[in-house]
Write a protein that binds this DNA or RNA. Sequence first.
DNA 1: CGCACTATTAAGTTATACATAATATGGATT
DNA 2: AATCCATATTATGTATAACTTAATAGTGCG
Lengths: 234, 234
Amino acid sequence: MDYANMHDDLRLHEQTSLVDKAETELLDFFQEQQYKTGDVIPKEVELAVQLGVSRTVIREALQRLRMRGMVETKKKRGTVITNPDLLSLLEKTMYPGILADETLRDIFELRLVLEIGMGDLLFERITQRDIDELYAIVADEPVNTEEMIFNADQEVRFHGKLYEITGNHTLMRFQQMLLPTFEYVHKSGLLKKQVQHKKFVSHRGLVDILQHGTAETFRNAMRNHFENHFQRLF
Amino acid sequence: MDYANMHDDLRLHEQTSLVDKAETELLDFFQEQQYKTGDVIPKEVELAVQLGVSRTVIREALQRLRMRGMVETKKKRGTVITNPDLLSLLEKTMYPGILADETLRDIFELRLVLEIGMGDLLFERITQRDIDELYAIVADEPVNTEEMIFNADQEVRFHGKLYEITGNHTLMRFQQMLLPTFEYVHKSGLLKKQVQHKKFVSHRGLVDILQHGTAETFRNAMRNHFENHFQRLF
DNA sequence: CGCACTATTAAGTTATACATAATATGGATT
DNA sequence: AATCCATATTATGTATAACTTAATAGTGCG
């Protein structure tokens, strides 16, 4: 290939690499072709010819899309369009060890915000079956919340079930990512020391409200349930 | 099928590519070497030799780390470790056209959940200066909310300011990502038709509450503010 | 008809060469 | 000696070709 001509239309895109360009051009191409999930896209060499770049560039661009779950490749069958999973790659980057302290704290707060705000979704979609299940989960909790011992497994089951009830899969995925980080921060030295346990709304109390209350009362109850966490933040 | 002979290299025969392995090996290597932000990592060819793969594989692995914001490369200077930005890559995946309808709806809901739930963060961190600024933003809004005309720019400024007040940068980044998708869904045919405008809490009303109210009243007000959106969902 | 063999295909991988841009080196001029 | 310009060096960016592997299709044989 003639390298002298390579930069003809590249002068405007100064610091963007060919891979960057190829990536967006591929996405545009897919959209233009109205590809749907499961459709097979042209071979790497064909794409290379079509975009006027080497197969190396195409491969690195596809590599990016692949890791975002936008495409999937199998030998011989080629590369197919897939439904991108927004959060799968976020998960990989979520190693608490490498995140900045501020980001960790942000995530801690994020969880509290989500669970307080999800009240309306819960009341819209919850069924009696869900409520029964929640009661079963909290069955072995002590009635007196002051004696409540923090049980990580219990926490995950209860709050995980809440996310599930929202029927919002993106939200559920979020929880799966946020929770480990939340626990990490909870146990780290990032926040103030654990304050004195006061009476707060228990898991059982939350279920009672889901049974008899409203979205509004639930929000307040969840806020109260998180009181200890909030006191460590503020 | 003969399972007896499979056990030997069963693990190698998994569908993990060399790039997958190289990616994790690189991360392990970085951690092992205790690289900090700004540190320069070995050249591509050296890494290739060290991991016993070709430079292509190394490049595609680095490509992944690069797009996650974990490394950054400059010509001649080499590749350096950087602080990963959790959301930068999410942003690129947020091509509304490619996302499944369900995911789009999820994101629509997510925004509502976030803004209702962020009340406590707001009241903890808001200043009089912030409130003044919010009043300035809503200054040109009609008092009678029924005459309120949807103004996208106004929406972004007001709600963006709220996210800013939380002081949670991750949350702010989220809003920047969610908003375009939210608008896309709002205008798409994914939801029920716009219902009749009823009286709802206006932006100005929300600011009044931030000035004189509590986190609890704010949550309820924000829920009411979004009433139209919720009616389109349920 | 059914089974096994092989031929083909497309991605996975390797190797090499060259381009580009930033940096370092070295020497010439003043 | 200090400044400046040309050149060499270096590491990433890009291109190309060749080879490997696994899945599929096709073919031929029984």
